[in-house]
Simulated assay, not measured.
Amino acid sequence: MDTQQFAGGNERFVRRYEYDDSWVIAADTGLPEEDLNVDIVGTTAIVVAESGDRVTETELELPGEDASVEMNNGVLTITVQK
Rank of each mutant, 00 (worst) to 15 (best):
T3M: 15
M1S: 10
L36W: 02
M1Y: 07
D39C: 05
E34M: 06
V38K: 04
E18Y: 06
N73A: 00
K82R: 12
I46Y: 09
T43S: 15
S68L: 01
Q4I: 15
V80I: 02
N72F: 00
L60F: 12
Q5I: 11
D35F: 01
P32G: 02
D35S: 12
T77G: 04
K82M: 09
S51I: 08
T43E: 11
I40P: 02
V47L: 04
N73R: 03
L31V: 09
S51V: 07
E34P: 07
G8F: 11
P63A: 03
A7P: 14
R16I: 13
E34R: 08
W23C: 03
G30M: 07
Q5H: 09
D28T: 03
L31K: 05
Q4C: 14
V38L: 00
V75A: 01
R15M: 14
M71C: 05
L60Q: 10
W23F: 06
Q4K: 15
A26W: 02
A45G: 02
D21C: 08
E34F: 04
L76W: 01
E59S: 08
M1V: 05
E50A: 15
G9M: 09
V48F: 07
R15F: 11
G42H: 11
T29M: 04
T77Y: 01
V48A: 13
Q81N: 12
A26L: 04
I40R: 03
T58H: 07
Q81S: 14
Q81G: 14
G8N: 14
S51D: 13
G74Q: 03
D2A: 15
N37W: 05
V47F: 01
Q5V: 12
T3G: 14
G42F: 11
T77Q: 01
E70C: 01
Q5W: 11
